[in-house]
Design a protein around this nucleic acid. Sequence first.
DNA 1: AGGTGTGAACACTTTCACAGCA
DNA 2: TGCTGTGAAAGTGTTCACACCT
Lengths: 212, 212
Amino acid sequence: VSRKVSDSTVRRLSHYLRILEHLEAGDAGTVSSEDLAGQAGTTAAQVRKDLSHFGSFGKRGLGYAVPDLADHVREILGLGRPWRVALLGAGRIGSALFEYADFRRRGFHIVSVLDADPAKVGTTWEGVTLRHPDEMERVVRDDGVEVLILAVPGEAAQALVERAVAAGVRGVLNFAPVQLRVPPGVAVQDVDMVMELEALAFELTHAGGDVP
Amino acid sequence: VSRKVSDSTVRRLSHYLRILEHLEAGDAGTVSSEDLAGQAGTTAAQVRKDLSHFGSFGKRGLGYAVPDLADHVREILGLGRPWRVALLGAGRIGSALFEYADFRRRGFHIVSVLDADPAKVGTTWEGVTLRHPDEMERVVRDDGVEVLILAVPGEAAQALVERAVAAGVRGVLNFAPVQLRVPPGVAVQDVDMVMELEALAFELTHAGGDVP
DNA sequence: AGGTGTGAACACTTTCACAGCA
DNA sequence: TGCTGTGAAAGTGTTCACACCT
């Protein structure tokens, strides 16, 4: 028996979690779907529907207990355990991502870094020694890598992903502007900043409302 | 008279454009919706429907002329002219974005950089002198800034956006993990890398298919 | 009262299937 | 013939409205 949960629902859950952690840090012991919706920029019905796919976490007439709901959402998203992540590409974007503290805060630990630049291979970043992509298979196996953050220029992306997947990686966060081909069972999330800017350009261009 | 175009359609158009520019660089003088769909990871019907919102660009029995269609898509997305962009936040992520060549290639020109760090203010990056956010209004006016890339730590985001918008900015590409409040007529696109990783974690966790 | 959980109504998107033109 | 452009059908996601619990 399986119910499909939409991608938008998952994204919203992630957003709710951010807000809940904010509330946890503050005083609030309880929130209503109305409150949460307000802060997340959605509707109360949407919040309740999203949560209802996974269980009944609220108390009627009261709302949701903040720490309790936060725990549930973390569990739903699969954040109940740490994730072992490899960073592929130690260039500008790669190094920025490596230092991005919010990843670790949510349990995503960058345990390996790979880069083809001989000047970088062998150096150490906060205790992680940079390796050459030739060592992909060994690194994935030895470090127990589950997820790959792909921040390489683009031409090399597909070949590297194939090796990573063959070695056991099951998820890829892809910053390369290419359509990756992966076998079934492997999850890919694309981050395309040019696409976002273009969506913005479109909105601004067609601001008046109508399209020919 | 106004037809609404869905966000997903716009994202796909951006994707098509990337593929078309690839084809342009190669030999291909013409593509079918089938071809394009294959490379974009969608269906032929979807491609045709997406394009049909804006006109009839193909020839029946033949397909689409590549350079012609590329031009049309560029025009649709609002890339027919350059865009003046300001970068707010010259930290790790900000500096990576500044050097991201694909922005310029598509006509997004970073004409101003602002950062609160006194050690950075006054220095010059590829001909752009870093300014302090206090000068926001002057910078937006003098440099003709239309779009803001927001790459600041998060607490400061809302206040800075309000000033930028008041000064005339109409679009924001937001990397700060906060829900920005902007007046109607201002477009915001959020890029949340933690959310992407969480979507990945969710997929991997619920791989077997079913949800309680 | 007050706010959740949810089936049913609604809105939007994608897919189908085919008429129509090069 | 081959492939586009497009109404109609199917499928998905969102909103409504209210029964139900505390």
